[in-house]
Computed example of a mutant assay.
Amino acid sequence: MTDTRNRRGASRTEAIMRTTLELGQEIGYAKLSIEAVAARAGAGKHTIYRRWPSKGALLLDSLLSLHESDLDYPDTGDITTDLRQQIYAAIDLMARPPFGPLYQALVGEAQYDPQVAAALNERFIAPQTNKTVARLKKAQDQGQLARGFNLDLAMAILSGPLYFQFLITHEPLTHEYVDQILDSLFAGMGPGDV
Rank of each mutant, 00 (worst) to 15 (best):
K138N: 03
T20S: 09
T132R: 01
L173K: 00
K131E: 06
D70W: 14
N6A: 15
R12G: 03
A39W: 05
L120M: 14
P161A: 07
F166E: 00
Q144K: 07
D179L: 06
Y29L: 02
L120C: 12
T4D: 15
T132G: 02
S62R: 00
E68H: 15
D183P: 09
A43F: 01
G42V: 10
F99G: 03
R18T: 09
D3V: 15
R50G: 10
P101L: 01
L59S: 02
H67F: 11
M94Y: 03
R40M: 05
I168L: 08
G100E: 00
N130P: 10
R123I: 14
R50W: 12
G190L: 08
G56Y: 00
E26T: 01
E68F: 12
R18G: 01
P161G: 08
A146S: 11
V133S: 03
R5F: 12
A15P: 00
L23T: 04
Q142K: 07
P53R: 07
A57Q: 06
D152V: 09
D82I: 08
K31A: 10
D193C: 14
Y73I: 11
E35P: 08
P161D: 07
M17E: 07
T132P: 01
D78V: 07
P191K: 01
M1E: 15
L59V: 02
Q85P: 14
P97V: 06
A95S: 10
V133G: 02
A10R: 12
I27G: 02
P191E: 03
L60R: 03
L32F: 02
G100M: 02
Y163Q: 11
S69R: 15
G188I: 15
P97T: 01
Y88D: 13
L151I: 01
T20G: 06
A117D: 12
R147P: 07
E26L: 10
L83I: 10
G192P: 07
Q25P: 04
Q140L: 03
R147W: 13
A139Y: 02
T2C: 13
Y103N: 04
F186N: 03
D92P: 05
F166N: 00
L93S: 09
E22R: 09
F164Y: 11
M94R: 03
A156K: 02
Q165K: 06
N130R: 12
G9H: 14
A110H: 07
W52I: 02
D3T: 15
A126K: 11
